[in-house]
C-alpha cells in the first residue's frame, strides 16, 4: 500500500489553475524525485499535499484522506516539510527552532546534531543570523524533529554554494541509508537525485507526464521535460 497517493489532483491560485491532474504514489521507506522545469507545478503539488492550497482529486496519506484536513493536521499525520526558501523562525535560536514543534520519536536533538554538526555549534544563535546553508540544515532538522513518516524537500539545495549542497546531499544520503523515512524531493540535480531516489515523477504544465523507476528515466524525457 502506498504511504502517499495522489490521483487526478487539480489546484488553482484563485482563477489561475496550476495543477491539471497530478498522479503519484510513494511507498513507505521509498524516495521519490519530483521533477520538471520551472513553473510546471512542483511546488504547487507540494503545497497541495501539505494542505497549504485547496486541491481537488484524490490525496491520501497513510490511508487517510487529506482533502479536508487543515495544514497542521496533515503535518501531524506525519508529513514533514522543508519549504522552498528555508523559512526558519527568524527570531528564535537554532535550538528553539528545533524544539518548538518537536514530537517524540527517533529524531531528537542529538541525532540532528549528528546529521548536521554545524548546527550543534550554533545552538544559541538566532536563525536570522545563520548563513543560507545553515538555515537550510536547520529547516531540515526542524522537519525531522517532528518525526515525520514522509519528509518533503522543496528545492532544498537551491541557491547554495557547491560545498554546502554536497553536505545537504550527503545528509539526505545518510537518511536513505538509515531507512524508515520516505522522501519526496523536488530538485533539478539529476545526478544527486539518481543516487538517492528509487522513483521519479516528471511534471509538465501542471500534469504528471512521466512516472517510473529513477533508473529508467531516459535522456528523451529529461531533455524534453526537465531541460538537462
Amino acid at each position: 500500500m502506498s504511504l502517499l497517493e495522489l490521483s487526478g489532483v487539480t489546484a488553482a491560485y484563485g482563477q489561475t489553475q496550476a495543477l491539471f491532474g497530478v498522479d503519484l504514489a510513494l511507498a513507505e521507506g521509498e524516495a521519490l524525485a519530483l521533477m520538471g522545469r520551472n513553473g510546471m507545478g512542483k511546488s504547487t503539488t507540494v503545497k497541495a499535499i501539505c494542505r497549504m492550497l485547496p486541491a481537488a482529486g484524490r490525496l491520501r496519506f497513510a490511508g487517510q484522506d487529506l482533502a479536508r484536513l487543515p495544514s497542521h493536521k496533515a503535518a501531524r499525520l506525519g508529513i514533514g516539510l522543508v519549504p522552498e526558501g528555508r523559512r526558519c523562525f527568524a527570531d528564535l535560536t537554532v535550538r528553539e527552532n528545533l524544539i518548538a514543534a518537536a514530537r517524540r520519536g527517533h529524531w531528537d536533538l542529538a541525532r540532528v546534531h549528528g546529521l548536521f554538526p554545524r548546527l550543534a555549534e550554533r545552538m544559541g544563535q538566532r536563525a536570522a543570523t545563520l548563513s543560507g546553508g545553515e538555515q537550510q540544515m536547520l529547516a531540515i532538522g526542524r522537519a525531522l524533529m517532528t518525526n515525520p513518516r514522509l519528509l518533503i524537500l522543496d528545492e532544498a539545495t537551491e541557491g547554495l554554494a557547491p560545498l554546502i549542497r554536497a553536505e545537504i546531499w550527503a545528509a539526505l544520503g545518510q537518511l536513505r541509508r538509515e531507512g524508515g523515512l520516505s522522501l519526496l524531493i523536488v530538485d533539478k540535480s539529476l545526478k544527486e537525485l539518481a543516487g538517492i531516489c528509487d522513483q521519479a515523477v516528471v511534471l509538465s504544465r501542471g500534469e504528471s507526464v512521466w512516472a517510473g523507476a529513477m533508473a529508467e528515466l531516459g535522456a528523451d524525457v529529461t531533455e524534453q521535460y526537465i531541460g538537462v
Partner: peptide
C-alpha cells in the same frame, strides 16, 4: 516558542503540525 513562531509566521507553524 511555538507561540512566538506563530506570531512571526502562522503558515510556517502549521507546516510543522501546530495549530496557531
Amino acid at each position: 516558542l511555538a507561540l512566538n513562531a506563530a506570531r512571526q509566521t502562522p503558515a510556517r507553524v502549521e507546516t510543522v503540525g501546530l495549530d496557531p
